[in-house]
Design a protein around this nucleic acid. Sequence first.
DNA 1: GCCAACGTTGGC
DNA 2: GCCAACGTTGGC
Length: 155
Amino acid sequence: MRYWLMKSEPDEASIDHLAQAPQQTLPWTGVRNYQARNFMRDTMKIGDGVLFYHSSCPAPGIAGLAEVASTAYPDPTQFDPQSPYFDPKATQQTPRWQLVDVVFKQKITLIPLATLREHPALAHMQVLAKGNRLSITPVTATEWRFITGQLVSPA
DNA sequence: GCCAACGTTGGC
DNA sequence: GCCAACGTTGGC
């Protein structure tokens, strides 16, 4: 059982979109970074905890809780010429990009990025590291317990 | 819109 | 394999 922080631009896929999706589940499309892909492909397991983070928006921060809901499978958008995530170098036989499904657990009162930075217990969170741009980062069990125990309140 | 930081590409 | 140039991320 591991824990993750997954960034999403709320314009594209917010915690509300996830809550309203069929089965409250969405495929995590569009990851085009090898490190993030490898986390999904090699390390994620069904049931892993997910901090759902809103990025590139007026109020960045953790907006909800979710769970990994599938093992990895090829991201269909890589094959779709109409998709912004189309990858001409990917083929059905040799896909490049993988994704997992994510299922909604809970919407919470936004924990702003600035609040995360305030807490010494979270000083080493990978997502807070200077220059971090990874859209999927591991969260330690200690960080998870601190956040869900001390910072989470229902929306 | 700015810009720091990072990942990827491609020439050599 | 090196590394400069370029594109992207993401907070502010």
